[in-house]
Amino acid sequence: MKRHPWLYAVLVVLGIWWLGSALLQSPILPSPLRVFAFVFSRKGLVMGSHLLASVRRLVLGVVSGLLIGYPLGLILGTYPRPHHVLSPIIALLYPIPKTTFLPLFMLAFGLGDAPKIGLILMIIVFPIIIMTRDQVMQLDPELFTPLIALGASETQLFRELVIPATIPQLLSTTRISTATALSVLFLAEAFGTRSGIGFFIMDAMQRINYVQMFAGILLLGVLGILSFQGIDWIEKKWNRKL
């Protein structure tokens, strides 16, 4: 249990699932064995293209959220004027549930990948901006003192101090936000698309094919765990350096 906590957790969850399906004896909750049999069957290959579509949207959304949010957070944390102009707007927009933007994005960008990626971007970008900005503002001024006395340029201050000091929090926020983004991706893929794990799950439900529906849920769960663990691994690697 202590040596392999993941194996332990997987076995417990599968055990509860199997027990539930055995007790319920209902098609709504098929046995995990039937679901795994479908996933590893030739028919299960159809999920590959849906998985790829979801991964593409997730990666593009997260990466674009980071590319916009992190530099913006650094700027807001460093320079008072952009902070005074933009921070109140960010504070106003941040609490609005981002899923409400989906219809707007669909009207603006059509039914392709753009509204889904845009929605994930919206989920990622706000916490990244706010966490980065706050962390820069909370940096101990004494850390800057020796570098300023050395005549360090602004670029050197960012490279040697501000960026390395904010990376751990950036990774942590990305990890948590990605989990939220994944659940939003499911919702986004339930509308106006014929690809993605979200579509696959909803389509299977409408076709009353609960084995396939659970296979989709399983795959979405695995995607979530892998992305969470992937960022966690990078975070640990970074922290081990410290």
């Binding site: 101990d140 004494e142 850390l143 800057f144 003192t145 020796p146 006395a149 050395l150 350096k241 410290l242």
Partner: peptide, 13 residues
Amino acid sequence: IGYVPQGYGLYPW
């Protein structure tokens, strides 16, 4: 200019 602040200003990363 070598500056040693009160809290030493070391970079943990």
